[in-house]
């Protein structure tokens, strides 16, 4: 594989489930991060990528939370706010729309891990009310509609996962989201069908395994 350039760089900490049993570790991590780094929201990221100049007096850090787990709201969110950090919550829209009694099965077929016994009511996904609450002071972002592997030569499925997710966010949050992360860390520029869907959905930023890309649609 070609060695990716590692500059200019952004600091990111990737999380998935954040169960209460590990709250002390998250608390210590957020405390240490906030002592050295500034919170980063989409406006900061946009200004940096637009101007090439970091707009804050300290370097920033992006704690990102993938898959839209309820424990991100219940456990991570209050700790982020205690330490003044901005979380980026990459949610799976059909998971949040799924009835609680079906969420374990939904997750099992879509590589969404459940913490056994965590929630007696069976709801493991972020609800839309929780996403609306996160949308006030944090970043809600798209991590597809179903979190399922899609053949990259299947335009209808790609459209559903990328554009369909944006339609869900727009309906439930009252506005489209600006950031997207494809499953398994794919980049913009690797697949023209997926790129076109990302453009149609109107996303401005794409998070992948090695990069954060400001997308052509964000111009102007």
């Amino acid at each position: 594989m070609t060695i990716p350039p590692l500059t200019p760089l952004l600091r990111v900490v990737n999380y998935h489930n954040t169960p209460a049993s590990r709250a002390d570790a998250y608390d210590a991590e957020f405390a240490a991060l906030s002592a050295r780094y500034a919170p980063v929201n989409e406006a900061v990221l946009a200004e940096y990528l637009r101007t090439g100049t970091w707009p804050l007096d300290r370097p920033g850090v992006i704690p990102s939370f993938y898959n839209g787990y309820r424990n991100n709201h219940d456990v991570a969110r209050p700790l982020l706010e205690k330490h003044g950090l901005t979380g980026w919550f990459f949610a799976v829209t059909a998971y949040s729309s799924c009835p609680p009694e079906q969420q374990v099965d939904f997750g099992a077929s879509r590589t969404l891990a459940i913490v056994p016994g965590e929630y007696e009511d069976g709801r493991h996904a972020l609800s839309w009310d929780e996403l609306r609450a996160l949308d006030q002071n944090h970043v809600v972002a798209s991590h597809t509609r179903n979190h399922t592997r899609v053949a990259l030569d299947d335009p209808a499925r790609i459209e559903d996962e990328i554009v369909g997710a944006q339609e869900d966010f727009t309906r439930e949050l009252g506005h489209p989201v600006r950031s997207f992360a494809w499953l398994f860390g794919g980049r913009y520029g690797e697949n023209p069908v997926a790129d076109a869907a990302v453009d149609r959905a109107g996303y401005h930023f794409l998070f992948s395994n090695f990069a954060v890309q400001r997308l052509p649609k964000a111009a102007g």
């Binding site: 990716p4 350039p5 590692l6 500059t7 200019p8 760089l9 952004l10 600091r11 990111v12 900490v13 990737n14 999380y15 998935h16 489930n17 954040t18 169960p19 590990r22 570790a25 998250y26 991590e29 940096y48 990528l49 637009r50 101007t51 090439g52 970091w54 704690p63 913490v115 913009y188 520029g189 998070f207 992948s208 090695f210 990069a211 954060v212 890309q213 400001r214 997308l215 052509p216 964000a218 111009a219 102007g220």
Partner: peptide, 23 residues
């Protein structure tokens, strides 16, 4: 269940400006 620290490279694909300068 854990936080994984990593670096991501920042890229601007809009073509509005020259490539981001290295820090």
């Amino acid at each position: 269940e854990i936080g994984v620290a990593t670096y991501l490279v920042a890229e601007d694909l809009t073509g509005e400006r020259p490539a981001l300068p290295p820090d």
